[in-house]
Design a protein around this nucleic acid. Sequence first.
DNA 1: CTGTCACATCAGCCGATGCTGATACCAGCA
DNA 2: TGCTGGTATCAGCATCGGCTGATGTGACAG
Lengths: 103, 103
Amino acid sequence: MLTSVDAELMRVLADPLRLRIVTLLARETLCTTHLVEETGAKQTNLSNHMKVLREAGVVETEPCGRFVYYRLRPAILDALAGSLGELAATARETVETGRKRAC
Amino acid sequence: MLTSVDAELMRVLADPLRLRIVTLLARETLCTTHLVEETGAKQTNLSNHMKVLREAGVVETEPCGRFVYYRLRPAILDALAGSLGELAATARETVETGRKRAC
DNA sequence: CTGTCACATCAGCCGATGCTGATACCAGCA
DNA sequence: TGCTGGTATCAGCATCGGCTGATGTGACAG
């Protein structure tokens, strides 16, 4: 396998609310106010999740007056999708050829 | 978006040890004994994780005498990689066209 | 300067989950 | 029928992480 799947990135994206946020941001760049409207979550909670996403490199921020826009970084998602695809391809070959270790 | 990313499946795969197990199983079908050797984890712990992976549909079991082989189900990983790829593609288009909601 | 609004930070609670030792189950073998 | 070895289950513990209310910060309007 060339690239390995990033467990930390998986963990960050595995939370239901964060995944919802990422899905919303995939369609259009939004700021916290919009995300509060869309998700119904508290501003505090949302801010915490945005921090996690920011520190994981999933989103980047763009200040705009008092507002802060959150923009997704597609390369991160591409890389994850790619490494998972590789894993799936490897698994498929293993299953189809019946490769197994004797015990 | 056609398919949405499965948060539960992400959660299952987000654990470091489980991801390690899945990566090992992608190369060759193994039984618990091998996984204990490879990961150094306790048999009890490993058995718990295998139950989680089994219930999530990530692996399927094949009894072989007193042993139990665990085989990955590639379709599950393919689907996840695919939906993540779609998400990434959507995000890329959003970023490149500068699509954002006014606040 | 003062008030308001958008957002971030902090401390605390609490439920979820990973890890472990003890134990049960089950297949093969003598 | 016992014994051994591979695996599953159970109860308890400890930690992690998400949610919340209170509070801080920084920018705009009047």
